[in-house]
Design a protein around this nucleic acid. Sequence first.
DNA 1: TTTT
DNA 2: TTTT
Lengths: 111, 111, 111, 111
Amino acid sequence: MSNLRNSVQLIGRLGKDPEIKVFDSGKKLATFTIATNSAYRNNKGDKVEEVQWHNLVMWDKLADIAAQYLKKGSEVAIEGKLVHRSYETSEGEKRYTTEINVNDIVMLGGK
Amino acid sequence: MSNLRNSVQLIGRLGKDPEIKVFDSGKKLATFTIATNSAYRNNKGDKVEEVQWHNLVMWDKLADIAAQYLKKGSEVAIEGKLVHRSYETSEGEKRYTTEINVNDIVMLGGK
Amino acid sequence: MSNLRNSVQLIGRLGKDPEIKVFDSGKKLATFTIATNSAYRNNKGDKVEEVQWHNLVMWDKLADIAAQYLKKGSEVAIEGKLVHRSYETSEGEKRYTTEINVNDIVMLGGK
Amino acid sequence: MSNLRNSVQLIGRLGKDPEIKVFDSGKKLATFTIATNSAYRNNKGDKVEEVQWHNLVMWDKLADIAAQYLKKGSEVAIEGKLVHRSYETSEGEKRYTTEINVNDIVMLGGK
DNA sequence: TTTT
DNA sequence: TTTT
């Protein structure tokens, strides 16, 4: 419940349509990425554009919202929890990934 | 500058003393990890404790603060930017890591 | 500097065009209000729309941005500091007001 | 539900013990104030300490937490919603007040 | 006073 | 892979 100890807010756009999975249990999962853009001047005074791509996951009701309303290019604001996970590759190697488990989303730019 | 597009807030404790590096340019870097704790009930009703360890980086003046005031066990609140980076292992394999580039820190539990 | 101790984030729309003042010192001030909307179901199950109007103030470079880009109906995300002030009415009575001193703004809904 | 459109985070200390009310309906309400401190240098270069006092309200389970654990001087982090209300004085005059309706609280400095 |  |  405590968003205060671990909270991420992002404003950005989807790189692709969300992928939706429905599990046998009925649980629904939407995964997608969003880009956040920033610009700064380097030590030569040139403007540098920087993009970060973030992995987002949304469950159940939020996955329904993703399935219905979100698509490639959609602008959203999200709040979520930062989660670091490990998994094994098919070759048996351990890999790490970071995802944002979304708690709340606002669709932006609606007319 | 825009924290609004990409902002993380965490409240937690350091796992170890910060590591401090000073570059030839004079730039200073502090790196450390903090743990954020949360508790929830699983579908059997049992309480589950979950810990997430986050990689933090602090530059220059903030690195000085880290060097002077932070040590293993210190409780802090931080605000930062979520940054995903890739690097090559010594075997030439590409790996990914996620760090929080800290903009602001508050030391807690003082006095 | 510390946004961590006192930080407000809002996403909403301007009720009117910003008002801009330039002081003799050259300092520039923009003031305006934004509405944040929320919806909930009351205990009868009816949907209730709730609007909150917030007083925002932006100084100097941010005031320039307000003057150039913001107008009635514009959708924005802002981060700022919550400030409670008192002042005297022309009748000499003390009154209190709450404002958000904006640190950062993102304009939303640009195609 | 959407914290994203209207969200306040504060870190500070209680000015007094919380006041607790229990309504006939069984609903419970805790009210208290917290101070947030900041320091900056004025245009003469002198350090200026600034304190803001914020009105907080917590309902039901959160009110229980306030009643049990919070007292004058307690250091807390809170997340809540910014709410502006009007009421009538006993002389029939309209007054305005701003409160933060707390959604989440973390007690700091424990042990 | 905004907007959906 | 988004967008300006």
